[in-house]
Design a protein around this nucleic acid. Structure first.
Lengths: 233, 233
DNA sequence: CACGCAAGCTTGTATATACAAGTTAAATAA
DNA sequence: TTATTTAACTTGTATATACAAGCTTGCGTG
């Protein structure tokens, strides 16, 4: 199972930008040039350019061409760091408790999110992360068992799910949704906080070259965690 | 100047959702059905559905069909957009109410954030933004009066602070901090929601070439608003 | 040398078509 | 009546083609 052609072109373009071959404001090959280089139809090349434009990496002007956008971000979100590493960087101690690691049948919604067939069995893990004995994040993760067949055999006291997945299915794409929720009574107990309290919840969907790898729900108490980013234009 | 056909279909779909004809999770007509209804090619209908899916309003599943997504306003973490524009793009109506627009003395902390001398007078504005008569964001903004001396003379019923600041002091840099907070009683009343409830709060500091322009606190009810991003590596 | 126009190139919208892959409904067989 | 198979429908990827609109470059003329 290889990536669709338009996705391969998207990755090529992102890599050219990343390695500095195409700096800010520089001209990107035209639809017809890319079509020639990749032996695809112009419409396929166009789709790649259009999606990257929609995502903000490129800007396009009719008649003039396609250019690398001025925007450049160094957000911590963009790096999708390993939580153990983040805590360690703060000079603190990371630990975690595995609550659940099992195989489940996915409902329709989750099947769509993981791009698997309905009623497929996938892995579900639930881990509570600590920073210096203070619970700071509940990680609930649904993992595509087709792409990562040995996920449920890992020892998550020595390696985080993020670390393992990065090794066996390196990230190529991700989406995030950040929301504020009210902690349930159960959640409040797990975090050792009083209700009512607000929590920051990040829903993260990750892809590797073979497809959707996992869908994670990362929930943290509002007073213990925040996300930062730094944008340069 | 008429809208392209695919944009007209997008608007039709947004309106159907807005008026309640298509509730959350309900099935949307297929590509071929829309192509028939609008006398367009399937590819044109497809483009409308695909863009709305990327925007988070729809979810699609091969073989099953296209469905209305769980509704939430969504803004980007990777770009700084004008809220009026974002709401407009969703086919919704933006409006706002100005609560405060005044000159204040800054304390030590705010002076540091705005990079001005202590006890300097800066502008403070407080605006409640609505999407289709639903309050979705309280914007509190401290503005550097040295760099933007005429901020407090603007009419913020016709232009948003973001628009104005972008004109007179174009953005070069920004930082975000995203956190979850519990709504105060006052805040709950402004949003028309019951306490206790969680809110998503973004603290944003923006720079232009001359220095720090403003420090904004953007607060939204958790069940009405989320932040998103889509990354390719 | 400067200006205007034409040609070439590029993006933007749209259509028709084809095949792949998955889901759902209908028909058939046990 | 239930289970299985087949057909119909739906989304997903890809190609070829056409025309519109805008930008850039090159050429010709003053």
């Amino acid at each position: 199972m290889t990536l669709p052609k338009f996705s391969q072109i998207k990755q090529h373009i992102c890599q050219q930008i990343e390695v500095g071959a195409w700096p800010q404001h520089s001209k990107v090959p035209s639809e017809n040039e890319l079509a020639g280089q990749f032996s695809v139809s112009r419409m396929t090349a166009r789709r790649a350019l259009q999606e990257l434009t929609e995502q903000g990496l490129l800007v396009r002007s009719q008649g003039a061409g396609t250019f690398v956008a001025t925007f450049k971000s160094q957000s911590s979100l963009l790096e999708i760091k390993n939580i153990a590493e983040e805590i360690s960087e703060r000079g603190h101690q990371h630990s975690s408790v595995l609550h659940q690691l099992k195989t489940i049948n996915v409902d329709a919604e989750m099947a769509i999110l993981l791009n698997v067939k309905q009623d497929t069995q996938v892995f579900y893990s639930e881990i509570l992360h600590f920073e210096n004995d203070q619970a700071i994040q509940l990680e609930q993760r649904f993992v595509n068992s087709v792409l990562v067949p040995e996920y449920n055999q890992q020892d998550f006291s020595v390696i985080t799910p993020h670390e393992y997945l990065s090794m066996v299915a390196p990230l190529t794409e991700a989406t995030h949704e950040v929301e504020a929720i009210l902690a349930s009574a159960e959640l409040a107990i797990q975090f050792g906080i009083k209700a009512p309290t607000a929590c920051l919840q990040v829903k993260r969907r990750t892809w590797s070259s073979q497809g959707v790898v996992s869908f994670a729900i990362l929930t943290s108490p509002g007073d213990k965690y925040r996300l930062g980013s730094h944008l340069v234009f």
